[in-house]
Design a protein around this nucleic acid. Structure first.
Lengths: 153, 153
DNA sequence: ATTAATTGGTTTCATATGTAACTATTATGC
DNA sequence: GCATAATAGTTACATATGAAACCAATTAAT
């Protein structure tokens, strides 16, 4: 039996829905720290990575937060200029440099983290405890599967 | 009792995870139609909207696919130049113009839809039937809730 | 050792996107 | 009816992003 007539209903199309949801959430969160702290999304992500995993090289940051090296480089340049991160060249391999938050950076980080977690908490209020776990599990599975699809065929 | 020490684990942080998942899925899908048909994501979305909801004005397109009018205008300009959509000025209100796919546009649309649905189907293979419905429901709830959070405080 | 290949990171260029200003047309207030 | 406001859509400018070229340092190959 041949395929039935296929119709694409954008509003029910999974890739589209994921995109719209992620964009809405990302913008809402950005609104919380953009104005008071003057950070872009990428800059904040770099700070979050450094705040959590002590010294990292730029490429390690990129791996952690799934961001290509050009984006990391630019975000770090901005953060260095504002004195929010510090860079120290690795003496054994002078191509790489380890990055960490400065005192100012740590102070800012400490103020943003509660905002971010608070927003996440409010967002999760849409779901019950059981549902949160379910959503997390399912979205993880989707992610892993999507990665598999991209790498193989 | 005061808050426990808060730590932000980016890799478990819902807004971040949504963003990474949506980006991966969106890029994977784009890879399917970008090269053969030379469409951007926004152009394809406009075509999908027009393919489904016969004649629409530019702002109606924008409402359907959650895209601001500038983005719609630019996508439509590109599609008009390639003869994939047709525009007709509304005679009763000459500010607006209704848009529809041209014959070429419909042909292209008909070739892309199965690619898109096929990808969605492969992606959904990560989940069982029950789980798909659960994920759809939960993500809908998240979306509605996120919209509420943004509109009020 | 000397050349070639790799890696970490930055810069350049071309394109995409968002905000605000602008044009044209229609609707509203008085 | 005329000034004002509102709406549909485009254009302009400034910023963001991605791909590729590039530089510097290290590693591998002969």
């Amino acid at each position: 039996m041949p395929n039935a007539l296929q119709a694409l209903e954008l509003e029910n199309f999974l890739p589209y829905r994921l995109s719209v949801l992620a964009q809405l959430v990302s913008e809402s969160l950005h609104d919380l720290y953009a104005e008071p702290f003057g950070l872009s999304v990428t800059q904040w992500r770099v700070m979050a990575a450094l705040g959590r995993f002590a010294p990292l090289t730029a490429s390690e940051v990129g791996q952690r937060i799934v961001m290509d090296k050009v984006a990391v480089s630019r975000a770090v340049a901005g953060l260095l200029k504002r004195g929010l991160v510090e860079r120290a060249t690795d003496l054994t391999d002078r191509r790489r440099a380890s990055l960490r938050l400065s005192a100012r950076g740590r102070a800012m980080h400490a103020r943003i983290v509660p905002l971010a977690l608070g927003y996440e908490e409010r967002l999760y209020k849409a779901l019950g405890g059981e549902e949160r776990r379910a959503f997390d599990t399912l979205s993880d599975r989707l992610f892993a599967h999507a990665k598999g699809l991209r790498d193989s065929p």
